[in-house]
């Protein structure tokens, strides 16, 4: 923990990185955007807009674990994510599916996600799961997060 600014965690203290993938910003439902916005800054989430850049990121050496929040816009996007399964071997996946159809859900389970939710869901569950996962790997759940400070989110 940085003593001068307790909100800033040095890279060496973090035993995990959190990344978020969504192909198109416009596809992200408003509800999800509302809950994600403060989360992006509190949890220093890296954003990815293409599978190519996501793949590049996953190819980088990583000391700790990665939590990946993957937003599959449609079935095709989900299939593309599945084709990259190889690169997710040490990644804890939180998956947002495009629909609740049985075949989509079955495809989703192929990624062995830690948590799965849907595009049309209430995303409060998602937020508490991400906060719990981040707490479990990094800091305690009681540590304050400050949504007003833009600490580390960056986009690729």
């Amino acid at each position: 923990m940085n003593e001068r600014n307790p909100q800033v965690r040095s890279k060496t203290e973090r035993r995990h990185d959190t990344i978020f993938y969504a192909k198109n910003h416009e596809d992200i439902p408003r509800k999800l955007r509302n809950v994600l916005e403060p989360l992006l800054f509190d949890e220093r989430i890296e954003l990815f807009r293409s599978l190519a850049s996501l793949k590049q990121r996953l190819c980088l050496p990583n000391e700790g674990r990665i939590i990946a929040i993957l937003f599959a816009a449609d079935k095709e996007d989900l299939m593309d994510i599945l084709s990259m399964r190889y690169f997710f071997c040490n990644v804890q996946i939180v998956l947002i599916l495009p629909s609740r159809r049985k075949e989509i859900v079955a495809l989703g389970h192929g990624l062995r996600p830690r948590f799965m939710t849907y595009k049309d869901a209430d995303f409060r569950e998602l937020v508490s799961v991400i906060r719990k996962m981040n707490g479990a790997f990094g800091r305690s759940n009681n540590e304050p997060g400050n949504g007003t400070q833009r600490l580390g989110a960056y986009e690729k």
Binding site: H109, R112, R114, S128, M133
Partner: peptide, 29 residues
């Protein structure tokens, strides 16, 4: 399906609805 339930990732208040599912209007949200 091979369905993973990661008990460390799920907040205690959500485990029941995530495992068993819920009906419409079962709780707020």
């Amino acid at each position: 399906n091979f369905v993973v339930v990661d008990c460390t990732a799920l907040p205690e208040t959500l485990v029941e609805s995530i495992l068993f599912g819920h009906s419409k209007g079962a709780f707020t949200g």
